[in-house]
Structure formats: C-alpha cells, structure tokens
Design a protein around this nucleic acid. Sequence first.
DNA 1: TTCATTTTGAAAACCCTTTTCAGCATAGAA
DNA 2: TTCTATGCTGAAAAGGGTTTTCAAAATGAA
Lengths: 136, 136
Amino acid sequence: MKDIQPDWPAGLKKTKQRECVLAVLEHARKPLSAMEIYSEIKRDGTSVWLSTVYRILELLVKRGMAVKIAVMNSETALYELNRFQHKHYAVCMNCHKIIQMDNCPMEKFLPKFQDDDFQVIGHNLEIYGFCKDCAH
Amino acid sequence: MKDIQPDWPAGLKKTKQRECVLAVLEHARKPLSAMEIYSEIKRDGTSVWLSTVYRILELLVKRGMAVKIAVMNSETALYELNRFQHKHYAVCMNCHKIIQMDNCPMEKFLPKFQDDDFQVIGHNLEIYGFCKDCAH
DNA sequence: TTCATTTTGAAAACCCTTTTCAGCATAGAA
DNA sequence: TTCTATGCTGAAAAGGGTTTTCAAAATGAA
C-alpha cells in the first residue's frame, strides 16, 4: 500500500499514517469518508486512530492535495485526491451511490441575484435521482 | 405572532408550539436554523424546547409545508416555508449572508454522466463568493 | 366531561468531528 | 550515528447539531 508515492511533498513529515491515508486516496475509485479511510487502513493491519485520519485529511485539504465533498442531506463529509478537475456528482436517492458528471451547467451561465451584486467565486452542484440499478 | 394562519392544516393538532414555529417561518425574510426559530419563539415569551422545534420542523418538511436547506460546508440546516418556487442561493464566504438567485442553470442543461444512465429527479446548486458588502 | 391519542418537556443519547495533552517519532544538526 | 527541537500521534474527552426516550400534559373527538 505504500509503494506508489514517487516523492513525498516538501514540508510534510513522512509518517506511516500519512502514507496510508494518501495511499488509500490514490487507490480510491470514489470519494471516501474519514471512517471508510480509517477502516481501509486498519484492514491492512496498520494501526491508526480516527482522529488522526481526520487531522491528516484536514491537512491535505489545506494543502490543496485533497478535496472535501459535502454531499447534501448527508451528515458525513467525503474526501478524494485533488486531481484538479472541475466536477460534480449525481447521488442515487436509493443506494446513495455517487456518480460523476462529465459536464457542468455553470459553464455558459450568468447568475442573476435578488440583491444587487455578488462576486461569484465558485459553485457546488449536486444532482439527485436514481441510478440505473435503482430506477424502477 | 399567532394572527396570520387563516386555517389550520387538516390532521395536525393545533398546539402553541406549532403555531409559533409556523408563525416565525411565515414572517421570516430568510431561511432560518432550528436554533434561530427557537430563539425567536422564546424572545416572544413562549416556552418551547429545542427538540420540539426540531420535531415540528421535521413534521412540516414531511408534509411538504416547509423546505430544509443544507448549505454546504455549514453544519446547521436551514428551514423556510415551502412557497413552491424552484430556487437557489448564493452564500457570502465572508459574512455568510444568503442571497437568493433568480435564475437556474439547469433549465436548459442536459447532464452527462460517467456511468450509464441516471434518472434525474432534482438538483441542488449553491453559488459561493462575496456579497456586495464584503467584496474588496 | 371523559377518554384515547398525540404532543411536549426534560434529559440523555447519538453521530460525526475537533480538541487536548502527554509521549513518541521524525528530520535536520552536530 | 547520535542528539535535539519540533511535529505528529494515541487516547480520551469534549463539542455541536440533531434525534430519541419516556412520562406527563394537552388536544380533539365522542
């Protein structure tokens, strides 16, 4: 699990726990919760504490190496490696699967506001509905 | 505060606490948190418990009379009366003010998904940036 | 008014996340 | 390599919003 980091980011102390969190994120095929990352690491036999996972995730987000995703109406945050792509997700209302969207409606859109001006920095968009397995 | 409900919704027992929550929501000029609703009611001299406010809000949402808004990266949910309009909000990154948007980018947009099909039911969109008071 | 049923008060539990602080590990200096 | 300052983790507890519990109180139908 620790064989894929080519070079360690400068200024970060290299610890077993940080290597593991990064490795899990690199192997992840979908955004993961702190608990999922924690379980994955423990399953591999490494000892970590949940609070440490949270600390490491916070650090990675602060350094721009990871992205925190807040799925609406879900109380747990998800994390993934920052691959520097603008993206949005669709969430299945039945199985809660998360599916990546490949386009963005905000590209060609000028928002109008009730109040006067608003300097737009970014946006979050989430589609909800039913995935192909749960559509009936 | 209890002077504006023309007729009480059928099947709902009329209690002081429910009247108050509805009254606060009717007077609100922006989405409110459970705590804000609770404070407002107590400020008017009525005795309520926070858990009761939560219970009432849950009931109103379940009945479609209120809408729950989950502002991303904020851990408190907001509630407002369901006025049956499709809308989105912009959130100021500095003062956290919430400003209503008057248009929606999803109106003329067909999402493309990484996985195959996804049956779209709805969407959440949130713009973030700086309001006119906080833009510098 | 009486009674069955809901609703609330009051407190505690929940769940995810953050904080605390002492002990330990790490990286850089010697 | 060894030493040392600094940063990181373990372990536990606290935090903050929200939900649950259960007995007591209030509601509305008869």
